[in-house]
Design a protein around this nucleic acid. Structure first.
Lengths: 244, 244
DNA sequence: ATATTCAACTTGTTCAAACAAGTTTGCGTG
DNA sequence: CACGCAAACTTGTTTGAACAAGTTGAATAT
């Protein structure tokens, strides 16, 4: 259950919007009305609302109110702005996901790896190569590098289930933020083989590289995710900041 | 100049971080110290800091402080999470950008266009097709649909300069948010021709579709941006929200 | 010397209040 | 009827305060 009041208000409103309680383009109850409904202060209501703004669910219009601009997304998609594991994404999209571990090994970061990943040279790492399936179809190849000192006891067995579940529920690590970059790259032979792609069809794929930090401020993971282009979809909501 | 106190604090801190005033992984001054420096309340400082967190510049560690995790990006990139026009991106990356208008016409949304763009059927639209160059190299083809009632007086001449400048400074429209989706698509003949791509090399490109809303809550723009894959790079910072 | 405890820090959440500024409504005047 | 103005809304910014919870380091007790 949510540990804070603004979170539960946020979730409640989010659910109501998703369920269609407010028409598209209609105004939500005003802040004052929400204060009365939830029995809290204005700041708490505003904090919940600002999360919905960040999600692209609503727009606040000074002098007018808060407008619902949520539109349901038809197909499976990965949402930017939040961090989800493959398992969580599968669940959210109500598909059956499975994972196959292609490689699991320990290595030490040489200069080349250090430059690419951002880990310091000489760092002890786990390297995991995995193939993710959705409904029996191979969609993503993941190349993960985990910092051994931050993720002790990682094994091929754990990698086959959910690393994030292990991190959060067994090691009690708190994952904070993840810097991500999306690019388009040429297909490699490995991609072609495991993702069952035909070069005559697509000769590129979508690549997401990410650096993930925990609550100790340590970058403990560097990942390159290579996605089948025909099933790749990334969503984002951008907010225009007032310029200088 | 910033219209609010928290904005100017945010910008000041952001600049100091970019200039390397705080070492990577070092702690920033505590909230209390910032209160004294800037002569404001704690909430105002915290608001500035939360913007830096959203940017992926810093991490807040309860009980410890605020840690700098900013690392300069080497190459030109488009930043997700904010809305920038092509002109603004060019400027930020210190490159000379130019724009060529390939097509400019008025049309009425039929059922097909309505379904794809999200505009209501029968809406009067401007359609603009543009080619964006960076340092003489064609990088992006843009297909824009603008709602005529919200963007009156748009012309090919304006489209050749900066539409956003026209919207904000002439029409005094306030752009609020933009829902975006990144996908990978097959190259079309138009892409091949104008982006000077060779199908034997890349046969796909990165596509960003976006729906942009103004402060009246009206979706006034639908855009499909087709990017040369070898110059495409999208950045994002994701924050993990506590789960239920 | 080592272990424990506590005080002094840090950030996180919530409340209450005040003023600014934008939009709507309706009333009254011309 | 039309217009203008003011009152009653709306969200945006800022302040100040209080308590919770996590971290650190010094003082104390073993």
């Amino acid at each position: 259950m949510p540990r804070s009041k603004y979170e539960s208000i946020y979730k409640d409103l989010k659910q109501k919007i998703e369920e269609g309680e407010y028409a598209y383009q209609a105004l939500l109850p005003s802040e004052h009305q929400l204060i009365l409904s939830y029995g809290c202060s204005r700041n708490t209501v505003r904090r919940a609302l600002s999360n919905l703004v960040a999600d692209g669910y609503v727009q606040t219009l000074p002098g007018k109110g808060v407008r619902n601009i949520y539109q349901a997304v038809e197909q499976a998609s990965y949402t930017l702005g939040s961090i989800e594991s493959f398992q969580e994404s599968s669940l959210r999209n109500r598909r059956r996901g499975s994972t196959r571990v292609l490689q699991f090994m320990e290595l030490t970061a040489d200069q080349k790896i250090a430059a690419r990943t951002g880990f310091p040279e000489g760092a002890e790492l786990y390297y995991v190569q995995r193939l993710h399936y959705l409904d029996q179809k191979p969609l993503i190849i993941n190349h993960n590098y985990f910092l051994k000192s931050a993720v002790p006891g990682l094994s091929a067995d754990i990698a086959g289930k959910s690393v994030y579940d292990y991190l959060e529920n067994t090691l009690h690590m708190t994952i904070v933020n993840s810097k991500r970059t999306v690019t388009v790259e040429k297909i490699t032979q490995i991609d072609e083989k495991y993702l069952e792609l035909n070069v005559d069809d697509y000769n590129c794929l979508a690549v997401i590289t990410s650096q993930t930090y925990n609550s100790d401020g340590v970058m403990f993971e560097y990942t390159q995710s290579r996605h089948r282009p025909d099933y790749f979809r990334f969503q984002d909501n951008a907010i225009r900041r007032k310029s200088s």
